[in-house]
Design a protein around this nucleic acid. Structure first.
Lengths: 147, 147
DNA sequence: TTGCTCCTCACGTCACGTGAGGTGGC
DNA sequence: TTGCTCCTCACGTCACGTGAGGTGGC
Protein backbone atom coordinates (compact mmCIF):
# COMPACT_ATOMS: atom_id res chain seq x y z
CA UNK A 1 0.00 0.00 0.00
CA UNK A 2 3.01 2.26 0.47
CA UNK A 3 5.43 3.29 -2.24
CA UNK A 4 6.65 -0.26 -2.77
CA UNK A 5 5.96 -0.48 -6.46
CA UNK A 6 5.22 -4.15 -7.03
CA UNK A 7 4.46 -5.89 -10.34
CA UNK A 8 6.44 -3.47 -12.43
CA UNK A 9 9.13 -5.57 -14.09
CA UNK A 10 9.12 -7.57 -17.29
CA UNK A 11 10.90 -10.88 -17.81
CA UNK A 12 13.79 -9.33 -19.72
CA UNK A 13 14.44 -6.78 -17.00
CA UNK A 14 14.41 -9.43 -14.30
CA UNK A 15 16.75 -11.60 -16.34
CA UNK A 16 19.19 -8.71 -16.74
CA UNK A 17 19.05 -7.83 -13.05
CA UNK A 18 19.80 -11.39 -11.94
CA UNK A 19 22.19 -12.32 -14.72
CA UNK A 20 20.25 -15.11 -16.42
CA UNK A 21 18.23 -15.36 -19.65
CA UNK A 22 14.45 -15.12 -20.02
CA UNK A 23 14.46 -18.78 -21.01
CA UNK A 24 15.88 -19.73 -17.62
CA UNK A 25 13.10 -17.85 -15.86
CA UNK A 26 10.41 -19.53 -17.97
CA UNK A 27 11.99 -22.90 -17.32
CA UNK A 28 12.01 -22.32 -13.57
CA UNK A 29 8.37 -21.30 -13.72
CA UNK A 30 7.63 -24.49 -15.64
CA UNK A 31 9.22 -26.48 -12.82
CA UNK A 32 7.13 -24.62 -10.26
CA UNK A 33 10.09 -22.78 -8.77
CA UNK A 34 8.85 -19.30 -9.61
CA UNK A 35 5.40 -17.88 -9.05
CA UNK A 36 3.42 -19.10 -12.01
CA UNK A 37 1.82 -15.70 -11.68
CA UNK A 38 -1.49 -17.50 -11.56
CA UNK A 39 -3.36 -14.34 -12.44
CA UNK A 40 -2.08 -14.22 -16.00
CA UNK A 41 -4.19 -14.80 -19.06
CA UNK A 42 -2.49 -17.25 -21.41
CA UNK A 43 -0.26 -15.41 -23.80
CA UNK A 44 -0.05 -12.22 -21.74
CA UNK A 45 3.24 -10.74 -20.57
CA UNK A 46 4.62 -11.95 -17.25
CA UNK A 47 4.82 -9.37 -14.47
CA UNK A 48 7.40 -9.40 -11.70
CA UNK A 49 8.10 -7.52 -8.48
CA UNK A 50 11.13 -7.00 -6.29
CA UNK A 51 10.19 -10.05 -4.23
CA UNK A 52 10.34 -12.23 -7.33
CA UNK A 53 13.80 -10.86 -8.11
CA UNK A 54 14.96 -11.67 -4.59
CA UNK A 55 13.56 -15.18 -4.80
CA UNK A 56 15.23 -15.82 -8.16
CA UNK A 57 18.54 -14.50 -6.83
CA UNK A 58 18.30 -16.92 -3.93
CA UNK A 59 17.56 -19.84 -6.25
CA UNK A 60 20.57 -18.97 -8.40
CA UNK A 61 22.74 -18.73 -5.34
CA UNK A 62 21.67 -22.15 -4.08
CA UNK A 63 22.27 -23.53 -7.56
CA UNK A 64 25.67 -21.96 -8.14
CA UNK A 65 27.25 -21.86 -4.69
CA UNK A 66 25.72 -24.93 -3.06
CA UNK A 67 25.51 -26.78 -6.36
CA UNK A 68 21.89 -27.88 -5.93
CA UNK A 69 20.06 -29.35 -8.92
CA UNK A 70 16.73 -27.85 -9.96
CA UNK A 71 15.10 -31.00 -8.68
CA UNK A 72 16.65 -30.41 -5.27
CA UNK A 73 15.48 -26.81 -5.37
CA UNK A 74 11.92 -28.00 -5.98
CA UNK A 75 12.16 -30.39 -3.05
CA UNK A 76 13.60 -27.64 -0.86
CA UNK A 77 10.77 -25.29 -1.76
CA UNK A 78 8.22 -27.98 -0.93
CA UNK A 79 9.93 -28.66 2.38
CA UNK A 80 9.87 -24.98 3.28
CA UNK A 81 6.23 -24.78 2.30
CA UNK A 82 5.41 -27.73 4.54
CA UNK A 83 7.35 -26.12 7.36
CA UNK A 84 5.46 -22.88 6.97
CA UNK A 85 2.12 -24.65 7.23
CA UNK A 86 3.41 -26.55 10.25
CA UNK A 87 4.34 -23.35 12.02
CA UNK A 88 0.76 -22.42 12.86
CA UNK A 89 0.02 -25.76 14.40
CA UNK A 90 3.45 -25.90 16.01
CA UNK A 91 3.03 -22.80 18.09
CA UNK A 92 1.98 -24.59 21.27
CA UNK A 93 2.75 -28.10 20.32
CA UNK A 94 4.09 -30.05 23.28
CA UNK A 95 5.96 -32.56 21.15
CA UNK A 96 9.24 -31.11 22.31
CA UNK A 97 11.42 -34.01 21.31
CA UNK A 98 10.08 -33.74 17.78
CA UNK A 99 11.04 -30.10 17.66
CA UNK A 100 14.44 -30.93 19.03
CA UNK A 101 14.95 -33.58 16.40
CA UNK A 102 13.98 -31.21 13.60
CA UNK A 103 16.28 -28.53 14.96
CA UNK A 104 19.13 -31.01 15.22
CA UNK A 105 18.64 -31.99 11.61
CA UNK A 106 18.61 -28.37 10.50
CA UNK A 107 21.79 -27.74 12.46
CA UNK A 108 23.52 -30.72 10.90
CA UNK A 109 22.47 -29.73 7.37
CA UNK A 110 23.60 -26.14 7.83
CA UNK A 111 26.91 -27.35 9.22
CA UNK A 112 27.51 -29.51 6.16
CA UNK A 113 26.59 -26.68 3.80
CA UNK A 114 29.02 -24.40 5.62
CA UNK A 115 31.81 -26.94 5.28
CA UNK A 116 31.17 -27.24 1.55
CA UNK A 117 31.25 -23.47 1.12
CA UNK A 118 34.40 -23.11 3.18
CA UNK A 119 36.08 -25.78 1.10
CA UNK A 120 35.13 -23.90 -2.05
CA UNK A 121 36.40 -20.71 -0.51
CA UNK A 122 39.80 -22.27 0.09
CA UNK A 123 39.98 -23.40 -3.53
CA UNK A 124 38.99 -19.94 -4.68
CA UNK A 125 41.60 -18.31 -2.46
CA UNK A 126 44.30 -20.62 -3.77
CA UNK A 127 43.35 -19.83 -7.34
CA UNK A 128 43.26 -16.10 -6.66
CA UNK A 129 46.69 -16.21 -5.04
CA UNK A 130 48.10 -18.07 -8.04
CA UNK A 131 46.63 -15.61 -10.50
CA UNK A 132 47.98 -12.67 -8.52
CA UNK A 133 51.42 -14.21 -8.60
CA UNK A 134 51.08 -14.79 -12.33
CA UNK A 135 50.03 -11.19 -12.84
CA UNK A 136 53.08 -9.98 -10.93
CA UNK A 137 55.34 -12.14 -13.08
CA UNK A 138 53.71 -10.80 -16.25
CA UNK A 139 54.17 -7.23 -15.09
CA UNK A 140 57.83 -7.99 -14.35
CA UNK A 141 58.47 -9.31 -17.83
CA UNK A 142 56.57 -6.42 -19.33
CA UNK A 143 58.77 -3.94 -17.46
CA UNK A 144 61.91 -5.63 -18.77
CA UNK A 145 60.69 -5.01 -22.28
CA UNK A 146 59.97 -1.35 -21.77
CA UNK A 147 58.24 0.98 -24.25
CA UNK B 1 64.07 -42.76 -13.84
CA UNK B 2 63.90 -42.01 -10.12
CA UNK B 3 61.18 -43.21 -7.78
CA UNK B 4 58.47 -41.17 -9.52
CA UNK B 5 56.17 -44.06 -10.26
CA UNK B 6 54.35 -42.96 -13.40
CA UNK B 7 51.59 -44.81 -15.24
CA UNK B 8 50.28 -46.51 -12.17
CA UNK B 9 46.69 -45.30 -11.85
CA UNK B 10 43.48 -46.62 -13.38
CA UNK B 11 40.59 -44.48 -14.52
CA UNK B 12 38.49 -45.18 -11.44
CA UNK B 13 41.31 -44.19 -9.09
CA UNK B 14 41.93 -40.94 -10.97
CA UNK B 15 38.21 -40.16 -10.94
CA UNK B 16 38.06 -40.68 -7.18
CA UNK B 17 41.16 -38.55 -6.58
CA UNK B 18 39.80 -35.64 -8.58
CA UNK B 19 36.16 -35.98 -7.65
CA UNK B 20 34.63 -36.76 -11.03
CA UNK B 21 33.31 -39.94 -12.67
CA UNK B 22 35.13 -42.17 -15.15
CA UNK B 23 32.65 -41.07 -17.77
CA UNK B 24 33.82 -37.48 -17.41
CA UNK B 25 37.43 -38.54 -17.96
CA UNK B 26 36.54 -40.53 -21.07
CA UNK B 27 34.52 -37.60 -22.39
CA UNK B 28 37.43 -35.21 -21.89
CA UNK B 29 39.72 -37.62 -23.68
CA UNK B 30 37.21 -37.78 -26.53
CA UNK B 31 37.38 -33.98 -26.80
CA UNK B 32 41.16 -34.09 -26.86
CA UNK B 33 41.56 -32.50 -23.45
CA UNK B 34 43.32 -35.43 -21.86
CA UNK B 35 46.23 -37.41 -23.25
CA UNK B 36 44.59 -39.99 -25.47
CA UNK B 37 47.39 -42.16 -24.13
CA UNK B 38 48.28 -42.84 -27.73
CA UNK B 39 50.12 -45.98 -26.79
CA UNK B 40 47.01 -47.93 -25.89
CA UNK B 41 45.72 -50.88 -27.82
CA UNK B 42 42.01 -50.50 -28.48
CA UNK B 43 40.04 -51.98 -25.65
CA UNK B 44 42.92 -52.00 -23.17
CA UNK B 45 42.75 -50.27 -19.79
CA UNK B 46 43.74 -46.61 -19.63
CA UNK B 47 46.85 -45.82 -17.59
CA UNK B 48 47.42 -42.55 -15.77
CA UNK B 49 50.22 -40.84 -13.87
CA UNK B 50 50.41 -38.04 -11.35
CA UNK B 51 50.88 -35.52 -14.15
CA UNK B 52 47.56 -36.58 -15.67
CA UNK B 53 45.88 -36.10 -12.30
CA UNK B 54 47.34 -32.61 -12.01
CA UNK B 55 46.20 -31.72 -15.51
CA UNK B 56 42.68 -32.98 -14.88
CA UNK B 57 42.54 -31.04 -11.60
CA UNK B 58 43.50 -27.88 -13.45
CA UNK B 59 40.85 -28.47 -16.10
CA UNK B 60 38.18 -28.97 -13.43
CA UNK B 61 39.33 -25.81 -11.69
CA UNK B 62 39.09 -23.74 -14.86
CA UNK B 63 35.67 -25.26 -15.51
CA UNK B 64 34.26 -24.77 -12.02
CA UNK B 65 35.90 -21.59 -10.78
CA UNK B 66 36.33 -19.65 -14.01
CA UNK B 67 33.22 -21.18 -15.56
CA UNK B 68 34.89 -22.10 -18.85
CA UNK B 69 33.03 -24.42 -21.24
CA UNK B 70 34.79 -27.55 -22.50
CA UNK B 71 34.99 -25.87 -25.87
CA UNK B 72 36.85 -22.96 -24.30
CA UNK B 73 39.15 -25.41 -22.53
CA UNK B 74 39.99 -26.99 -25.87
CA UNK B 75 40.77 -23.59 -27.36
CA UNK B 76 42.88 -22.69 -24.35
CA UNK B 77 44.87 -25.90 -24.66
CA UNK B 78 45.47 -25.23 -28.33
CA UNK B 79 46.58 -21.68 -27.58
CA UNK B 80 49.03 -22.90 -24.97
CA UNK B 81 50.34 -25.51 -27.35
CA UNK B 82 50.90 -22.85 -30.00
CA UNK B 83 52.64 -20.67 -27.45
CA UNK B 84 54.94 -23.51 -26.46
CA UNK B 85 56.00 -24.10 -30.04
CA UNK B 86 56.54 -20.36 -30.45
CA UNK B 87 58.85 -20.24 -27.45
CA UNK B 88 61.76 -21.91 -29.25
CA UNK B 89 61.65 -19.50 -32.14
CA UNK B 90 60.96 -16.59 -29.81
CA UNK B 91 64.09 -16.93 -27.81
CA UNK B 92 66.03 -14.29 -29.70
CA UNK B 93 63.25 -12.81 -31.72
CA UNK B 94 63.72 -9.07 -32.11
CA UNK B 95 60.01 -8.40 -32.64
CA UNK B 96 59.82 -6.64 -29.31
CA UNK B 97 56.57 -4.82 -29.91
CA UNK B 98 54.92 -8.14 -30.73
CA UNK B 99 56.09 -9.58 -27.44
CA UNK B 100 54.86 -6.49 -25.65
CA UNK B 101 51.47 -6.81 -27.28
CA UNK B 102 51.15 -10.46 -26.30
CA UNK B 103 52.19 -9.68 -22.74
CA UNK B 104 49.68 -6.86 -22.55
CA UNK B 105 46.93 -9.18 -23.68
CA UNK B 106 47.91 -11.80 -21.11
CA UNK B 107 47.93 -9.14 -18.40
CA UNK B 108 44.49 -7.92 -19.38
CA UNK B 109 43.03 -11.43 -19.48
CA UNK B 110 44.50 -12.34 -16.11
CA UNK B 111 43.17 -9.12 -14.64
CA UNK B 112 39.65 -9.92 -15.85
CA UNK B 113 39.84 -13.46 -14.50
CA UNK B 114 40.96 -12.11 -11.14
CA UNK B 115 38.02 -9.72 -11.03
CA UNK B 116 35.60 -12.55 -11.77
CA UNK B 117 37.10 -14.70 -9.02
CA UNK B 118 37.06 -11.84 -6.53
CA UNK B 119 33.42 -11.18 -7.30
CA UNK B 120 32.62 -14.84 -6.68
CA UNK B 121 34.62 -14.71 -3.49
CA UNK B 122 32.49 -11.86 -2.22
CA UNK B 123 29.30 -13.78 -2.97
CA UNK B 124 30.70 -16.82 -1.22
CA UNK B 125 31.70 -14.77 1.82
CA UNK B 126 28.24 -13.23 2.03
CA UNK B 127 26.62 -16.63 1.86
CA UNK B 128 28.99 -18.08 4.46
CA UNK B 129 28.25 -15.19 6.83
CA UNK B 130 24.51 -15.73 6.43
CA UNK B 131 24.79 -19.44 7.10
CA UNK B 132 26.92 -18.83 10.18
CA UNK B 133 24.29 -16.45 11.48
CA UNK B 134 21.59 -19.01 10.76
CA UNK B 135 23.57 -21.69 12.58
CA UNK B 136 23.88 -19.43 15.62
CA UNK B 137 20.14 -18.82 15.63
CA UNK B 138 19.45 -22.54 15.37
CA UNK B 139 21.77 -23.27 18.28
CA UNK B 140 20.02 -20.61 20.30
CA UNK B 141 16.60 -22.15 19.73
CA UNK B 142 17.98 -25.58 20.42
CA UNK B 143 19.35 -24.39 23.76
CA UNK B 144 15.96 -22.97 24.72
CA UNK B 145 14.46 -26.42 24.24
CA UNK B 146 16.99 -28.20 26.37
CA UNK B 147 17.19 -32.00 26.80
C1' DT C 1 38.26 -69.57 -11.13
C1' DT C 2 35.71 -65.78 -9.14
C1' DG C 3 34.93 -60.75 -8.65
C1' DC C 4 35.89 -56.42 -9.61
C1' DT C 5 36.98 -52.80 -12.57
C1' DC C 6 37.61 -51.88 -16.94
C1' DC C 7 36.11 -51.51 -22.15
C1' DT C 8 32.96 -49.67 -26.16
C1' DC C 9 28.68 -48.37 -28.14
C1' DA C 10 24.57 -45.85 -27.74
C1' DC C 11 20.49 -43.97 -25.94
C1' DG C 12 18.77 -40.92 -21.96
C1' DT C 13 18.78 -36.69 -19.20
C1' DC C 14 19.34 -32.13 -17.25
C1' DA C 15 19.35 -27.28 -17.95
C1' DC C 16 18.78 -24.58 -20.75
C1' DG C 17 19.81 -22.36 -26.26
C1' DT C 18 17.75 -21.20 -30.40
C1' DG C 19 14.88 -20.40 -33.93
C1' DA C 20 9.78 -20.16 -36.07
C1' DG C 21 5.71 -17.84 -36.22
C1' DG C 22 2.73 -14.75 -33.93
C1' DT C 23 0.78 -11.14 -30.57
C1' DG C 24 1.00 -7.04 -27.27
C1' DG C 25 2.34 -2.59 -24.93
C1' DC C 26 4.99 2.33 -25.02
C1' DT D 1 2.09 3.00 -37.17
C1' DT D 2 6.69 1.28 -36.25
C1' DG D 3 9.91 -1.29 -33.27
C1' DC D 4 10.91 -3.68 -29.55
C1' DT D 5 10.05 -7.09 -26.27
C1' DC D 6 7.10 -10.36 -25.26
C1' DC D 7 4.45 -15.02 -26.14
C1' DT D 8 4.22 -20.37 -27.11
C1' DC D 9 5.74 -24.53 -29.20
C1' DA D 10 9.40 -27.51 -30.25
C1' DC D 11 13.70 -29.15 -31.73
C1' DG D 12 18.90 -28.62 -30.69
C1' DT D 13 22.91 -28.74 -27.60
C1' DC D 14 26.22 -29.35 -23.92
C1' DA D 15 28.11 -32.27 -20.43
C1' DC D 16 27.73 -35.86 -18.95
C1' DG D 17 24.44 -40.40 -16.74
C1' DT D 18 23.20 -44.95 -17.43
C1' DG D 19 22.60 -49.31 -18.90
C1' DA D 20 23.89 -53.45 -22.32
C1' DG D 21 27.05 -56.73 -23.47
C1' DG D 22 31.71 -58.07 -23.29
C1' DT D 23 36.84 -58.43 -21.96
C1' DG D 24 41.02 -58.01 -18.81
C1' DG D 25 44.05 -57.90 -14.62
C1' DC D 26 45.00 -59.14 -9.31
Amino acid sequence: MSATEQRALRIGEVAELVGVTPRTIRYYEELGLLGAAAARTKGAHRQYGEDDVARLRELIRLRDLLGLSLDELVTLAETEEARRSLRAQWHDDPAEHERARILDQAIELTRQQLQLLQSRRRKLDDFIAELEQKLDALHGRRRELGS
